[in-house]
Design a protein around this nucleic acid. Sequence first.
RNA 1: CGGGACGUGGCUCAGCCUGGUAGAGCACAGCGUUCGGGACGCUGGGGUCGCAGGUUCAAAUCCUGCCGUCCCGACCA
Length: 506
Amino acid sequence: MSKKEQTAISPTRFENYPEWYQQVVKASEMAEISPVRGCMIIKPWGYGLWESLQRQIDDMFKATGVKNAYFPLFIPISFLEKEAEHVEGFAKECAVVTHHKLEKGEDGRLVPAGKLSEPLIVRPTSETIIGDAFSRWIKSHRDLPMLINQWANVVRWEMRTRVFLRTSEFLWQEGHTVHASKQEAIDRTCMMLNVYKRVAEELLAIPVITGDKSEAEKFPGAETTMCIEAMMQDKKALQAGTSHFLGQNFAKASGIRFQSAEEKEELAWTTSWGVSTRLIGGLIMTHGDDNGVILPPRVATAHVVLLPILKKPEENEAVMTYTEELARQLRNILYHGTPLRVEVDARNIGGTRNWEWIKKGIPVRVEIGPKDIASNAVFMSRRDLDRKQSRSVTKETFLSDIIGILDDIQKNLFERALAFRESNTHDFDDMSSFDAFFTPVNKEQPEIHGGFARAHWCGGSDCETTIKNRLNVTIRCIPFDGKEEAGSCIECSKPSKKRVVFAKAY
RNA sequence: CGGGACGUGGCUCAGCCUGGUAGAGCACAGCGUUCGGGACGCUGGGGUCGCAGGUUCAAAUCCUGCCGUCCCGACCA
């Protein structure tokens, strides 16, 4: 056999990153592509992750006073037309419903019939229809702030799709708030971005940069868009969440007015913010290795899998009893407020079983055989460590340590990802080294290259466009934590006070 | 939406050039031997060869159209 260690996923990240991603999604049984163009089927192992994420995000929203509601999937075209920039941004990727029934055609096939008087679009986002409701709900400053969120599916008819990262239909939450003052709306925009930063860093163990989007990258119809940006293992940036200060644009479009304390009619200020199932793609690309996914414990579909070693019939019952007892004890332990999620996999299918769980990325695997029972022990493996570091520990030690172990995995994943980002983030002050940074050695089959480049930018969209056209590199964000320093724009040399983050992006 | 590649059991693919009624490996099911182990043997199930037309006595194979997937670009959470 070859010297090279065999990996569960082929090709490896290094060999072909996009293909590796596809294979990981498949091998981990998180999702698959559906018969419907551009849409995905999220399988239980992937959906469980979304559920645990959703539950925790929802709690965080509610802690800030947000309430959930649900608005229609269909939006009248006339609603979309109300905000000019908004139309511009979304019109070309809308699914449109034009008929309301099917009839048998001449060839026996079903054909659309019953044309709608006004076509409906399937929501690409819900600012307009929620704005319409807000205009009726809000009369007085006493109705404000209005803090609403909905968990929903949306459709954006994408040309090129990728499971979890960009599909025609995806799941997300969209928060929509209305405020009496500009400052309060801006504060809310920041507050929710901070929630997203915590979601990414504390739950998903994905370090993110927070900042403002440039004019070219902001949400259609927004005054400003703030974002969290993460670095994937191919050194490309992933926009993982956005929070928009909408100014009075949508209030104007939908007629959201209120009577102020001074008895004057005023136009309201609104925000919107969202994260989607794209986060799952980000998780895979941040933590995955050549053996599959690695799930951060805080969001993992399951935390621990127990793998009883069933060899001889006369021993099996004792092994299963010991296993079930351990499962019961584990499920009584709380991990960050929720009971540990434990799987028992008693299939007698040899090493394949172990590898399936490695590919799925479950944080902790525990093998239990007759020898372990004899010594009152378990044989434990951590997904974030090398398989050779698996070790035998007593059952009591395991039970008392498991929370610490999971927290340690969580911490390890975050620190690993942070170190990767740091080592691939550089300052640039001249164009030739900037160009070299973003130019692959092999142009035919580009190797993994680039990263985050912090460079000065004059603020002009011409410079931004020039760079984008030449290198396919965009301004990911104007970071909040960037320090003020005198410099000159990397493209045009005009004065600049701050560095922005450039990168290739998903 | 432009350029490229591809579509044959669940998966990876051979067969297509030189038409003659479908193959392998893996996976799956059963039995047995192994096994703290991605094991081995035997037996078995499963495919209208992406879809629709056309050419032909005969099409996975030739022709046309459509659909889908992946990669690269434009666009995007």
